[in-house]
């Protein structure tokens, strides 16, 4: 009870502060990579503020989990209007918290590889998980998941941990989507090739992959776009796998307790316009959620075509994730 009253008091204090400002402030809880200088955040803020007569404010929290944790702690007094940075791996759990509200906007112009009719989450970009490899060290990468699993053990790969990282969870679902109940055995076979299972994508990419520790790392099919467009090098490429690639969709949602719901909905609508989407390809290094036509950077034509899109319904993921994780752990620890 003490906490509740503390929260209440604090909430009163902060809402008083918020109202003291004349211009409406739209607060978006997001992830650091989105709001960073190099991320799409700053340009999007500028574009949206031009047309909304408001101030767009980012609060960057480390992960989707941190965003929801913060929302819960703040309860009804939260300043957050929109959360941006959840994905298909976590959105069901987020839905169940009851902290979010339906977006009530039209999703007609979405251009995703799957049908999307969710009433709560608005996709803002998507990508495929893929293994990125160093062409200098691995001229002939495996061409399928099966080939990777059956490759000789001296081929080493770096993956991220599904317990702590989004791509890590992506690979877990990818294996599941391809192998179903046989995923455990396959993991066991794959485990001999895994050099390291890192906490985060950055740990693996910066500390290990770029140090040449292994020629292949679990990443996104879009990763080479950055290297090709900005670093001007074709050295790092994604390996196309015959079984298809697992899809990740990143989403935004309206916070139930938002005091600026109309403005927040305007922002959600803005997400699905070129003004927002044109910053996604090179700044978030993902595919835009709408068709950008000729505005899509040319390097995106040189990325792999996933062939088949693999995707498991988020509700199923939410239900099964723990069991699948345990299966993975058992397979890996043996």
């Amino acid at each position: 009870m003490l906490f509740r009253s503390v929260l209440l008091l604090a909430g009163l204090a902060s809402s008083a502060l918020a109202f003291a400002d004349n211009q409406t402030t739209l607060t978006v809880y997001t992830q650091p990579s989105f709001a960073a200088e190099w991320g799409p955040g700053p340009a999007i803020k500028q574009a949206f503020e031009k047309k909304c007569d408001c101030t767009l404010r980012y609060v960057a929290l480390e992960s989707g989990g941190d965003i929801l944790q913060r929302l819960r702690l703040e309860g009804a007094s939260t300043n957050a209007d929109v959360v941006l940075g959840l994905d298909t791996g976590t959105m069901e759990t987020a839905r169940q918290t009851g902290l979010l509200a339906p977006h009530d906007i039209s999703l007609d112009n979405l251009d995703l590889p799957i049908d999307w009719t969710d009433s709560m989450f608005v996709p803002y970009d998507y990508g495929y998980f893929a293994f990125v490899y160093d062409t200098q060290k691995l001229p002939n990468p495996p061409t399928s998941l099966e080939a990777l699993i059956n490759a000789p053990d001296d081929l080493k790969i770096i993956i991220e941990d599904p317990r702590t990282s989004t791509p890590g969870l992506g690979l877990l679902l990818w294996m599941r989507a391809v192998y179903g109940d046989k995923a455990g055995e396959k993991w066991q076979k794959l485990s001999h090739k895994i050099l390291a299972t890192t906490k985060s994508w950055s740990d693996g990419y910066f500390s290990l992959f770029m140090n040449g520790e292994a020629p292949m790392i679990l990443s996104y099919s879009t990763s080479p776009a950055y290297h090709m467009a900005v670093d001007k090098t074709d050295r790092y490429q994604a390996a196309r796998f015959d079984e298809g690639h697992y899809l990740q969709v990143e989403v935004a949602a309206l916070v139930k307790t938002s005091r600026h719901k109309d403005l927040a909905r305007d922002f959600l609508k803005f997400i699905l316009t070129p003004g927002f989407q044109q910053h996604i390809p090179l700044k978030n290094v993902m595919y835009p959620a709408i068709d950008l036509g000729d505005d899509l950077p040319a390097v995106f034509d040189r990325l792999i075509e996933p062939g088949k899109t693999l995707y498991i319904d988020p509700a199923v993921v939410a239900q099964q994730r723990k069991a699948w994780l345990n299966q993975w752990l058992n397979a890996m620890i043996q």
Binding site: S63, G64, G65, D66, L68, Q69, G89, T90, T93, A94, T97, D161, R163, T164, L169, S191, I194, L195, A196, T197, T198, K199, S200, D203, G204, S207, L208, R321, K322, W328, L329, M332, I333
Partner: peptide, 29 residues
């Protein structure tokens, strides 16, 4: 210790309590 153990631990066998705490918060809420 956390990130070191995961990066250099070689696999999920190398898991500390801190990893489990992080996991519980980040994905499972």
């Amino acid at each position: 210790s956390f990130a070191i153990i995961m990066t250099l631990g070689g696999g999920p066998g190398a898991t500390t309590l801190e990893v489990a705490i992080y996991q519980a918060l980040r994905f499972e809420f």
